[in-house]
Design a protein around this nucleic acid. Structure first.
Lengths: 203, 203
DNA sequence: ACAGTTACATACATATCTGTACGTATCTAT
DNA sequence: ATAGATACGTACAGATATGTATGTAACTGT
């Protein structure tokens, strides 16, 4: 009885399977330990491989983490960020963002965003730059919505739109991750925090 | 002309001066790079010493960081946390906490709290335990205030008091640090976030 | 079937960090 | 003044991390 594993795989299937396993392991590791304490040895072992496999798929630690960030960006954009472009009431869009983000953060790898952002804050590193750019883009979208809402009267006046958007996303991210797993209050409190930052009355 | 420095120091003065310099350097390092990327070599050099001096004053990296955390705890309790025990309107006390914390976070070492909390989240480490205990204590105080406010009617009903307190402090910490240096909006938005979490109407 | 490519493991080189042992200069007490 | 304690520097040892070079087994096209 030899190790006849996985019913014979093609190279492409093998590659994708390994790559995904390594990415998931890395995401979990970043969420738990951050970038600095992320050991490629542990990432590979936890995924069932050695560092050799990892270096075959990714040029190095940076590229691995960049791939993780890219994956998070994609899933976030699909599951959360799409409400920013659905044209409708700006205030409703931002509140929907809060609820969607709270749900997104229920998965244990969501902390990747927050961990890396803090770790690379005000630092000159490719990972930090990618994170900063991604966040900046989202902040810009939110600021536009806030300005639109203030124009049409659905959002009260307040600090500059961009500063408000910055606070909104910061509070939302922190609350959603901190309260992940405390359903259903995670959604409620995320929405409350966003309402407060926007100056909206309680629901 | 020999290096006749500092007008002749006593040993006790020397010790305190060196210790404070090392603590401040470490605090700045943690705020910027976190614990894992905190090099004792850099800490000592930046303070004008070598690692020898550091190891003479602190048993090791952990004890140094614990001392930094202790220092932050003390200054925070004196400048921010005291409003939690000043008996008065619970809602007003929590809003005062928000404003005080925003002001506290304007100093560049305030991020020590947030960085270490995230880095040692769900981890078995002396530093993590101290942080967790400190935060836990503050959360408990806030939860008590929330319950009192809900009893006397100054705070609306909502999710469990402890969960609400958790969200309140998380949002407050994140917003205050993110917006530090954006005066005066840092105070305004910190208070807005707290109002929102508590379910209070905008000011 | 066989040559070439791909996926992965193993072994090695190197850098960096912590911690310790020890040396030296400065202060203090008798 | 001198012996001892204290503050600090220097040198070394061990652990652990990344990255690279190389070996090997599995798959693929002709």
């Amino acid at each position: 009885m030899t190790t006849q594993q996985h019913t014979r795989l093609t190279q492409a299937e093998r590659r994708i399977r390994s790559r995904n396993a390594l990415l998931e392991s890395a995401a979990r590791g970043i969420a738990q330990h951050g970038y600095a304490n992320l050991s490629l040895e542990r990432v590979a072992t936890q995924a069932g491989y050695t560092r050799g496999a990892l270096y075959h798929q990714f040029a190095g630690k940076d590229e691995l983490v960049l791939a993780v960030v890219g994956w998070v960006k994609e899933t976030w954009a699909a599951e959360v960020g799409q409400v920013l472009t659905d044209h409708g009431n700006p205030a409703d869009a931002l509140l929907a963002l809060a609820r969607n983000h709270a749900i997104y953060c229920r998965r244990d790898v969501a902390a990747v965003l927050l961990n890396l952002r803090i770790e690379f804050d005000s630092q000159d590193h490719p990972v930090g730059r990618l994170i900063a750019e991604s966040i900046d883009h989202i902040v810009t979208d939110c600021a536009r919505l806030i300005e639109a809402g203030r124009t049409d009267g659905s959002i009260p006046q307040g600090p500059p739109a961009r500063t408000t958007a910055d606070a909104l996303l910061t509070a939302l991210e922190a609350v959603a991750i901190e309260l992940a797993g405390q359903a259903p209050h995670d959604i409620d409190l995320a929405e409350r925090a966003v309402r407060g930052v926007l100056g909206l009355p309680p629901h």
